[in-house]
Amino acid sequence: MDNSDFRQRSMFAETWKRLKKNRGAMIGLVIVIILFLLAIFAGVIFDYDTDVIGQNYNELLQEPSWKHPFGTDEMGRDLLARIIYGSRASLFISFAAVCLAAVVGCFFGAISGYFGGRIDSVIMRITDMFLAIPETLFAITLVAALGTGTFTLIIALAISNIPIFCRLLRSSVMTQRGSEHIEAARAIGAKTSTIIWDHILPNCIAPVLVQFTLSIAVTILTISGLSFLGLGVSPPKPEWGALLSSSRSYMREHTYLTIFPGLAIMTTILSLNLLGDGLRDALDPRLR
């Protein structure tokens, strides 16, 4: 019997095939890849010491030109170089923090939603506690206590993002748990771990993906807020939010100083959202 026609479609191949059909998601994906490549190879394009932090008083506050496509800032530094280097801090910190938050939050959310009862109450009360503290305030406290630094920043931002993921996954796990196909899985004798991994989590991924892109966006903004307060990335190291806040005083005469960092943040968030929405649809076999 020739079974070659009945090979299972792999989940990744399937998802990719569907994702390719979504133009918005593909644009998002391409931009995200370019941003990452730029962040990784920033050192090849620009020299950190001269281009990024080296001050040049001959070229203060220049309008965009061929030499400086995005212009220069109040210390004569090339804005393009600073934005590209800045993406390292913004992207790395926000991705690391949100990934960490998503993993930890989903883990506890899944446990909370599936088992319910006392475990659920304990986990939920703890998340409520964290949810009650504003994200920025929490990060400030933690950074103040542990000292500034990339690692502390990641931990602080991760902790403040955990409750959202935890609650989100809990509610979708609870809906899934009550559905008939979970009962069917129990009826065929599947173990609890199999049910959670194989049947519940794959069906809960969509809202998590969307929240992931939203959280990245919010986190990039929080980082910039913290940098502004001197608790984030310390100058002269560039960072998008810091660039934005330092350009405030020149906003009237030198608009480009705020426009370009703003555009960088916006493009990143937009492409992530496009990609997230596209992935959510592509992962769902019902939407084809």
Binding site: S179, E180, A185, D198
Partner: peptide
Amino acid sequence: RREMQMIFQDPLASLDPR
């Protein structure tokens, strides 16, 4: 459970959509 099985009312809801 190998010996005792169940067929459900709503065929769509009782099958994992993914």
